[in-house]
């Protein structure tokens, strides 16, 4: 009698677990659709990790919430029932299990995350500290076999509230970042005033830019197209307006763009913060004095106006 009860319980629990696992796996696949297009090698591996965590998370969430829901639905006290439930103070086996399983899980997640971070090898501000970073020795080998960009690193200059990109070999300045596809891109990040953040959601990479430091940054774009580059570290009054485009193009198109840009004489680029500051177009203004935006830069290649419309027209 007891045996068959036990078998029945195990069967029911097993069925529920399988059902939850299936739902979780499905959710894990859905997770890919919640993210921007995968425009870099890094994006592919990060999305895999995210999908894995969504699968695990869904399983745990449904497990906990399902149990609670069952209790709420079927274990309510009767209206006039003032008796207590069973006096159960704990269960050592159960407690060990639910300490051990999360422990193993987080070690697994941390290991997996470490592996992916290692592969990404986005550099970041590690050169600042004297200690040569641990665990990054394998990074070179692990990085995907894309050819490195043959040119000098592109300089990213951030200031309140301008993105300016400088291509040292061609002596080009631009307010739009052009990158060749399928090559390891090298950037040098600099800020002239406050903290800024270099963030391209489609690449899944982000790095704060710190005034007084020069930060090397690397990633590999793999999908041609036009993406948004946003300031991700709050930088003051016009922080939200500090956005521009990244254009990933084929090697030929990229080279052509370099030639065209080098041939164009520098012109004043439109700058949204500067424009707004000088037009004070807002109906409710307190007149609080704010930091004055840097003047619009002189560039060979200004950003696309249809994706970066002037203020008053969306964004």
């Amino acid at each position: 009698m007891m045996e068959s009860m036990k078998i029945r319980t195990i069967l029911i629990l097993g069925t529920i677990a399988i059902a939850l696992a299936l739902v979780s796996l499905w959710m894990g696949q859905q997770a890919y659709t919640w993210l921007p297009p995968q425009a870099s090698v890094e994006a592919e591996s990060i999305d895999r990790l995210f999908s894995f965590l969504v699968t695990l998370g869904t399983f745990i969430f449904l497990g906990v919430v399902g149990t609670l829901t069952y209790s709420v639905l079927f274990q309510q006290a009767g209206k006039y029932d003032t008796s207590d439930g069973p006096h159960i103070e704990g269960n050592l086996t159960l407690e060990i299990v639910w300490t051990a399983i999360p422990f193993v899980l987080v070690v697994w997640i941390a290991g997996y995350s470490y592996h992916i971070y290692d592969q990404m090898s986005i550099l970041g501000p590690m050169d600042h500290v004297h200690v040569k970073t641990m665990g990054m020795a394998t990074a070179e080998a692990a990085t995907l076999d894309t050819p490195e960009m043959k040119t000098h690193p592109i300089e990213v200059r951030a200031r309140q509230w301008v993105w300016e990109f400088y291509y040292p070999e061609q002596n080009i300045t631009s307010t739009e970042l052009h990158l060749p596809s399928n090559q390891r891109v090298k950037l040098v990040l600099r800020s002239e005033d406050v903290l800024h953040g270099f963030y391209v959601p489609a690449f899944r990479v982000k790095q704060d830019i710190i005034p007084g430091r020069v930060i090397d940054f690397e990633f590999t774009p793999i999908r041609e197209g036009r993406y948004r580059l946003r300031d991700s570290q709050y930088s003051g009054t016009y922080f939200a307006a500090m956005q521009t485009d990244v254009v990933v193009e084929s090697e030929q198109a990229y080279q052509q763009w370099l030639i065209d840009a080098a041939a164009s004489p520098p012109i004043v680029a439109y700058n949204r913060a500067f424009d707004e500051y000088n037009r004070a177009h807002n109906p409710i203004s307190t007149g609080w004095k704010t930091v004055e935006p840097a003047p619009p830069p002189m560039v060979n290649a200004p950003a696309n106006r249809s994706t970066n419309p002037p203020s008053g027209q969306s964004l």
């Binding site: 591996s45 990790l49 965590l53 998370g57 745990i60 995350s113 990479v205 982000k206």
Partner: peptide, 18 residues
């Protein structure tokens, strides 16, 4: 659960400050 995701450096690099 979202906290564990944020603890994972590669995911945090993407969603940090978002």
């Amino acid at each position: 659960i979202t906290g564990i995701m944020l603890a994972s450096v590669p995911i945090d690099i993407h969603v940090n400050n978002t």
